[in-house]
């Protein structure tokens, strides 16, 4: 119960700071809008080509915008050794991981909530009939990416070249999540059968569980200087 309250307190603090500075959300949203608008000029709206490529564009937007947010959120915590202030509190390191992961999920979800409707309008794609399974895939993909991202952004924040180090560490490890998310979204948007979509969703769930548990357990060691 104490840990739940502490997790809530850390998330509240992170959201409050972001509401004041807006540097994470603005950089993530601008990046995602640029990607969607640029691809809108390349492909004809409503064409077969856009249906095939839209899932990839969607996940490229989420992952690269997410990378920007992850890098910034931990860089902020390491300025003036603020992370030490958090680590001095009587809080389990795993609770810090959960709080940071949930905070990252909130910021990435906000990007998805803004960029997905814009994509739907600009690309003229129809998602009403697949909305709930699509939301499920987005939620699962976001959880897995945020879990791995939280761990690696903590590691890279301790390095001098953190902006370069984060994608180098994060992307290779998160390939299974990205692959499962893109494949399940592609089958869903292109009228794939339930069995095809469900098999990729199951893989996504499996990787979410594996990565979240692993990162949760490893976080204590990652925070060690």
């Amino acid at each position: 119960m104490k840990s739940v309250r502490q997790i809530g307190t850390i998330i509240h603090k992170d959201v409050l700071i972001e509401l004041r500075s807006k540097d994470i959300i603005i950089s993530m949203l601008i990046f995602s809008l640029i990607v969607v608008v640029v691809f809108n000029f390349i492909f004809d709206p409503g064409s077969e080509m856009i249906k095939t490529t839209a899932p990839g564009i969607l996940w490229v937007t989420i992952i690269f915008a997410g990378n920007l947010g992850l890098a910034r959120s931990f860089a902020r915590e390491h300025e003036n050794a603020r992370m030490h202030g958090l680590l001095l509190c009587p809080v389990d390191r795993s609770a810090i991981f959960v709080a940071k992961m949930l905070g990252n999920i909130i910021f990435i979800t906000l990007v998805e909530v803004v960029s997905l409707p814009i994509m739907v309008i600009l690309f003229d794609i129809h998602i009403r009939h697949i909305l709930w399974p699509l939301i499920l895939i987005l939620v699962l993909g976001t959880i897995g990416f945020a879990a791995v991202g939280t761990l690696f952004s903590t590691i890279s924040a301790n390095t001098k070249s953190r902006e370069v180090m984060l994608p180098l560490l994060l992307f290779p490890v998160s390939i299974p999540i990205i692959l499962a998310a893109v494949k399940s979204t592609t089958f869903l948007m292109n009228g794939g059968g339930f069995a095809q979509v469900w098999s990729w969703i199951k893989i996504l769930i499996a990787f979410d569980v594996i990565f979240t548990v692993l990162c949760f357990l490893l976080y204590d060691y990652v925070l060690e200087e």
């Binding site: 603090k13 409050l16 700071i17 003036n80 050794a81």
Partner: peptide, 13 residues
């Protein structure tokens, strides 16, 4: 209670 070189405080708050 620990006080280090840095204040460990959040400037935006």
């Amino acid at each position: 209670g620990f006080i280090g070189h840095a204040g460990l405080l959040y400037d935006e708050l």
